[in-house]
Design a binder for these strands. Structure first.
Length: 495
RNA sequence: GGGCCAGUAGCUCAGCCGGUAGAGCAGCGGCCUUUUAAGCCGUUGGUCGAAGGUUCGAUUCCUUCCUGGCUCACCA
């Protein structure tokens, strides 16, 4: 508990006075007829008409026996003009006990002030919730048609810890999260056109799989067993394909017990999709259509600005096989190299390859260092080495590769997809190879899932699968530099 | 985990080659019945992130720690 400072004590004092005036500072409901935005949009029709609005007081200018203040609701702000002659002594007393941050309801007539601002001439004022804690005051003015903000609430630590305050005083933050919601809705609408089934699969799993990452571990008391928070949905969604659903998707949170930085939060959102009888080539087209159409729906454009770069999401996106990409950006053809040669090449390129790394890991490092950051425009990197992708189907033309792609935009992968491995014997071998890596000390190597293999043995149709990192996509479409700006409550150390 | 930077009033920030703190906004009091970063006059408010050290004296110098940001490493 922090101590009650003077400002809070003053507000508690006002609360007492309100009680003494017989006013309930926390009443039960309020009937509003319009939002702030509706009044502004429909001013021609509403001028001189009675309306009621509700919202939080965000500014206050008292001038003797009259006052102006702004109310903020979900859609914006509207000015209220109040004068003592109109509302009477009692309500003017109430007004004087109000603070910025209080939530009030107003009945009044729409009008335009002398300076031209659409406002409400208050006839009745009702307190809906007394605020006891001072909000950061952010002042702004319109200059040359754009908004100038003074002393914005900008301390990142405070903004993340008290996101509720951030949302109240920083409209652009609200916008980002509205867009986030629209992006997810847009994707869902796109997916539903195909009649895919939206499903939920377990978050608490006895075995974790579907990705290479360290898990969070927890314990179930009644069953007295270890459980893991999922690192991916993949293996359960494929079980559903085996069960006969021919298209399933899930928006869900995955949990990875790894570092935190501006691209990583331990808890993040992913959309995974699996479609029977399709392959990764089909999925590439699907992906570029879904992302570009969602962007168009939310932003009205397929050309977007991201960190001072212009990115064109219009399909088709470039297809670039992994080895060709590495050749293009390093001049070295590593496609035929064995582990030893790869290791030497990596060293020559200045990458300190650790002993536990297999060839897949080394290739991934070279790619991540020399190619990925250069891929600003949307690019599908395709055809990864088989060791890097234990759940992907071997390439139809080259058994050393798998049919996999990652969509890369602005130098960051936003997803991962493949023709799903449905050969149960091959899958068992791949799992075993992973177990060997694990035995060598690779803590992120995947674990063998006997039930998943049993499911595969019953037969899974040819299937294409896709995972899209929703947080990264939202960053891209909202021009946000940090994942913390697109997650309401990013992980923080306790205060 | 490494490197760099930051933490001073409710918010945004000054100050600091040592002498126990300032501004703007907010708040409080006064004037003001169409203002808009309203204005004018007055005024309250701080264990200067925490602990230790150096010193007659530390917000200022040193050490350690805490929290956060950026960045590198690992990863989606």
């Amino acid at each position: 508990m922090d101590e009650l400072n003077q400002l809070i004590l003053q507000r508690r004092d006002k609360l007492e006075k309100l009680h003494k005036l017989g006013i309930n500072p926390y009443p039960y409901h309020f009937d509003r007829t319009h939002t702030s935005q509706e009044i502004i949009d429909q001013f021609q029709d509403l001028n001189e008409k009675g309306v009621s609005v509700a919202g939080r007081i965000m500014s206050n200018r008292q001038m003797g026996k009259a006052a102006f203040f702004h109310l903020q609701d979900m859609k914006g702000k509207i000015q209220v003009y109040l004068k003592k002659d109109e509302v009477g002594d009692t309500e003017f007393e109430l007004y004087k006990l109000l603070d910025i941050g209080d939530i009030v309801g107003i009945f009044g007539k729409v009008f335009k002030t002398r300076t031209g601002e659409i406002s409400i001439f208050c006839q009745k004022l009702e307190l809906l919730s007394k605020s006891l804690r001072p909000l950061p005051i952010v002042k702004e003015k319109i200059e040359d048609d754009h908004k100038v903000v003074f002393d914005p609430f900008s301390d990142k630590e405070l903004r993340y810890r008290q996101r509720y305050v951030d949302l109240v005083v920083n409209p652009h933050v609200r916008e980002v999260f509205i867009k986030r919601s629209k992006i997810i809705t847009g994707m869902r609408q796109f997916l539903d056109q195909y009649e895919f089934l939206e499903v939920q699969t377990p978050i608490l799993q006895p075995l974790y799989g579907g990705a290479t990452a360290r898990p969070f571990v927890t314990h179930h008391n009644a069953l007295d067993m270890k459980l893991y928070l999922r690192i991916a949905d993949e293996l359960y969604l494929k079980r559903l394909i085996i069960g006969g659903f021919e298209g399933v998707y899930e928006f869900g949170n995955d949990f990875r017990n790894e570092g935190i930085d501006r691209f990583h939060n331990p808890e993040f959102t992913q959309m995974e999709l699996y479609v029977a009888y399709k392959d990764y080539a089909w999925m590439m087209e699907f992906t570029e259509n879904m992302v570009s159409q969602t962007a168009h729906k939310v932003l009205g454009n397929m050309k977007i600005k991201f960190q001072n770069q212009t990115i064109d999401l219009t399909p088709p996106w470039k297809r670039l096989p992994l080895f060709e990409g590495i050749k293009e950006y390093t001049g070295i053809d590593i496609s035929q190299m064995e582990e030893e040669a790869l290791r030497n090449t990596a060293e020559d390129l200045g990458i300190a390859a650790e002993n536990s790394w297999g060839s897949g890991k080394i290739i991934d490092e070279i790619f991540g260092e020399f190619v990925e950051p250069k891929l600003i425009q949307p690019t599908f990197i395709t055809d990864y080495p088989v060791e890097m992708s234990p759940l992907a189907k071997k390439h139809r033309e080259n058994p050393r590769l798998v049919e996999r792609f990652e969509p890369i935009i602005a130098g960051k992968e936003i997803g991962n997809a493949f023709s799903e491995l449905n050969d149960p014997l091959d899958q068992r071998e791949r799992f075993e190879a992973q177990m060997n890596l694990r035995a060598k000390g690779d803590e992120e190597a995947q674990v063998l899932d006997e039930d998943f293999l049993r499911a595969l043995e019953y037969g899974m149709p040819p299937t294409a699968g896709l995972g899209i990192g929703i947080d990264r996509l939202v960053m891209l479409l909202t021009d946000s530099a940090s994942i913390r700006d697109v997650i309401f409550f990013p992980q923080m150390r306790p205060e």
